[in-house]
Write a protein that binds this DNA or RNA. Structure first.
Lengths: 249, 249
DNA sequence: TGCACTAGCCTGTATATACAACCTGCCTTG
DNA sequence: CAAGGCAGGTTGTATATACAGGCTAGTGCA
């Protein structure tokens, strides 16, 4: 119940966001300037600055030096889907994750892998092939190539204890990633590994991860269409996911 | 070439992010406090505060009042996929978007739609069925239900000129959304609408959009598996997408 | 009429200062 | 020995002030 007064700058932000949300302020409309907020709300200019600066950082408004602050146009908001680490995803559902490492070996990049990793064909890579299970049922076939020079200790890892993705981000945090999602019919190998019935399609996620601007890993993640789905939530710009006040459980 | 000095707070942020990226500072390590930065970097405490506060907002560090500032652990970074408005996506590729409105009518919600929209069965909705084409080839079948009370003018819209999604976000900006992506085999109707061959799977995106905390629209978006893919980029926390310095084109 | 300049507002950054609230660890006291 | 309290460091917020730089409109001059 803590009726603790919210900080002034937060109140002002919410008031302005509220006006935008209710349509009272529409895209490209002018928002009060810092000095106007000083007069209107009785705060100092630094506080008004923080209000408008954060609204700008969070994408609600756009600021032009010398001109003013204006409501941003929410350009057909691209909504967002999160692609989680498979083990975490399963744990989050309260289920049990297990996996079989089908292959873990040094290898040479074929043309496709070399192109994806930005190296010459027949460059040194490690190849990992893992079936991930949720409560025993196969749910993902991970077919991954790792740049050998980036993670030379790959062959010594226990990929039942730590997923390749987690291992890689342990080597270098702040990785970037690129994803492609497709629906496709599995070939025979994939179908058997995932114990899929005939005529059942795959959800295929292709992922490249980058560290320090270089591609370091390329993975094809096959999922059985009837046992797997990606889900995601999109909330407007700077919605801070704090613990207090979870939305819409 | 503008050798314009970057602002001091920005330099300090980048220096700290660099240390994290290079692994010199690891998760849960202590970051210099505001007062320490005052001494080390020769800035005022307000500037040091801005540095650490923004690093916190962007997820690089966590701050605990009375204790200190610590490098955040990047919990198996959930990577991100953007689900764009189909017309924008096509335009972005420099292609031509066209569409056929197969149905636009008032309707009653069936059980599934009512549950998705949080209304009683047989509640008033509008039903829109549209085939979207890219350079003439069908690429998405949009099967959408809209809460009648939220958008009473739906039947008067020209959905060849403006997509339903854009129309809805025009009524109320700052919408939230929930997505599910699956691979599935299309039924006969879908297959014919999208001119798909037999045995070709669909990428199915199910989307609910919310305004002011209420579900206002429910859509099933069917895409032919061999002509469509979702792509996405993930960059670490607060990477501001400014125009200058596009990354890795 | 047309051009140059300037006044005035705006954002962006930076400093110095102040007070509240929080947490830890040490020290005092019972 | 244990419990309580206090000191000092840390974050969080807020103010007053200052100067640089961008943009616009209007003034005044040629």
């Amino acid at each position: 119940m803590t009726v603790q007064a919210k900080p002034r700058y937060q109140q002002l932000k919410e008031e302005i966001i509220g006006r935008i949300s209710r349509g009272e302020l529409r895209p490209s409309d002018r928002v009060p300037s810092e000095n106007e907020l000083v007069g209107l709300a009785g705060v100092s200019r630094m506080t008004a600055n923080r209000v408008l600066r954060e609204l700008n950082d969070e994408g609600y408004v756009e600021r032009v030096a010398g001109v003013g602050t204006f409501v941003a146009d929410f350009k057909a908001a691209s909504h967002v889907l999160e692609v989680r680490n498979i083990a975490d995803e399963i744990a989050r559902r309260g289920h049990r994750h297990s996996s079989d490492v089908l292959r873990l070996a040094a290898d040479r990049a074929d043309r496709e892998v070399a192109a994806a990793l930005g190296i010459r064909a027949r460059g040194r890579v490690f190849h990992v092939l893992i079936v991930h299970r949720e409560n025993g049922a196969p749910i993902q076939l991970e077919d991954r190539y790792i740049l050998a020079s980036f993670a030379p200790d790959t062959l010594a890892q226990d990929f039942q204890a730590i997923t390749p993705g987690a291992y890689l981000s342990g080597i270098s945090p702040l990785q970037e990633a690129e994803h492609t999602v497709r629906a496709s019919m599995p070939d025979e190998t994939v179908r058997e590994s995932l114990q899929m019935s005939a005529r059942e399609p795959c959800l295929l996620v292709i992922r490249r991860t980058f560290a320090h601007g270089r591609a370091v890993s390329f993975a094809r993640l096959y999922h059985p269409g009837n046992r797997f789905e990606l889900t995601g939530h999109y909330t407007p710009p700077g919605t801070r996911q704090t613990d207090k006040g979870g939305r819409m459980q």
